[in-house]
Structure formats: C-alpha cells, structure tokens
C-alpha cells in the first residue's frame, strides 16, 4: 500500500487491520497522525449515530407479535412443488382477471383492507383499551386532531396498506369487534356498503383520507361512523344500518 492508497482507504474503512500496519510502516511520513485523525472522526460518527431506542418500542414489538399458532409452518420439502405449481396457475389466472377488470380506487381499497385483516388476525383478540394518548399521537402524526372520548380502541397500529399508509384500529362493539382503517391521503374513495369474502365493509371519505369499517356484521357501523365524525368535529346524519 502506498501513501495515496493509504489516504484513500482512510475514508473507506479506517478500522481495517491493514490500516494500523500501514501506519506503523509509515507509508506516508505522517501516516500515524492521519490514522489517529481518521479514527477520531469514526468515533465522532459513532457518537452521532447512537440514537437511543425509544423506551417502549421493544415491549410494543413483542406485544404485537402474533401467537405462535398463527405463524405459518414451513411446508415439507417433498410437497412444495405441487403447491408452487398450483399457486403459479392461480396467480396467472388472477393476474389475467385483474388485467381484464382493473378495480376502482374504492374497490381496490376494500380488497386491500380485507386482505390486510388476514395479516393481523391477532388484532381482533385484544381486550385491553389502547391508551388515548397513543391514539391522539398517531393521528397527530397523520395531521389530524381527534377527540378520543367516544373512541374506545382495543388495537392500534400504523400499517402499510397496498400503496397507502393507514392507521389500523379495532373497536369492540355489540355485534363483535369492528376493524377501522383510516387511510391517509386517500382522496378518491366513494361511500359504499358491501360484503367481501364474508366481511361487511363500509368505505367513506373522512378527514384528509378515507375510513374503512370491517366486521362480520354492519349493525354497529352507523354508531361507529358517527363517533368518528364527532371525534373530528364533523356532524352527520345516518340512516340505521342493518345486515
């Protein structure tokens, strides 16, 4: 290693063992001083990068992990190829259908929301109430002020949803838990009541985005929708909902 190469490597990896050897061999007259200076810079970078872990992050991660039974088990290596073949055929079929009939933004959002439910099934099994401060904070980060008085949530998470960010929540209700997804910045959503894959779904424009309600039954949708409108200071009259 010559002096030029030594200087170049000081900016690539000054902690590499060969750098100390090169400095000792004085490949440049001032190689030891240059190495000391480079290591001091490394120390300063290390100190700057050392951001502390938020206090509750690990606990939140561990608490959000689904139970072990929900984790898919690896398939037997002898049986993988028929499944892969079937999946490929299904995928080709699905893609063909999808190309023939591209869904509307509302249809796409409904499909993505229902699919997302399967990713976080444990969300529906929580019973404790999410602290209001967390709910307020998450919506504040999404640019919305809400009053949480009527919003008793048993689950809260920020989730990617197709090509959007969403706040994924669950609200206990008389007819069973209702999943509420607030989709940030989604402006093209129409009001719609429908069922998809046995799930009752309601979509509506809400605040700066859209709200999606999902449950086995839509009987609690009106009450929950009204609560959300009141939470952001909107007034709305709704017809009574029914299955």
């Amino acid at each position: 290693m010559n002096c030029t190469e030594f200087q170049r490597r000081l900016l690539i990896d000054p902690r590499a063992p060969e750098m100390a050897a090169a400095a000792q061999a004085r490949v440049c007259e001032d190689a030891p001083a240059r190495l000391a200076e480079a290591l001091a810079l490394e120390h300063r970078i290390d100190s700057a990068l050392a951001v502390p872990l938020p206090d509750d992050l690990v606990d939140r991660i561990v608490a959000a992990l689904p139970p072990e039974a929900a984790v898919p088990q690896p398939a037997s290596t002898r049986r993988w190829w028929p499944l892969a073949l079937a999946a490929s055929v299904a995928l080709v079929g699905w893609l063909s259908l999808a190309l023939l009939r591209a869904p509307s933004p509302t249809g796409a959002l409904i499909a993505a929301s229902v699919e997302h439910l399967a990713h976080e099934p444990y969300a529906l099994t929580r019973s404790g109430r999410v602290p209001d401060s967390l709910v307020t904070r998450m919506f504040r980060e999404a640019g919305i002020r809400i009053d949480t008085e009527e919003l008793a949530l048993s689950y809260l998470n920020r989730c990617p949803l197709d090509r959007r960010w969403s706040v994924h929540m669950v609200m206990p209700a008389a007819e069973g838990p209702v999943t509420v997804m607030y989709v940030i910045g989604e402006a093209e959503i129409e009001r719609m009541d429908t069922r998809k894959e046995m799930v009752a779904v309601r979509t509506l424009p809400f605040a700066d985005g859209a709200l999606v309600l999902l449950a086995e039954s839509n009987r609690d949708f009106d009450r929950i929708e009204s609560a959300w409108h009141r939470a952001v200071g909107e007034a709305v009259e709704l017809a009574a909902g029914s299955d």
Partner: peptide, 11 residues
C-alpha cells in the same frame, strides 16, 4: 419500520 420488520421476520 422496526416493528413491521420484526413482524415479517416472525411470520
């Protein structure tokens, strides 16, 4: 990102 990554890793 960290939470989502651990969830994906667990799955």
């Amino acid at each position: 990102l960290v939470q989502e990554s651990f969830l994906r890793a667990w799955r």
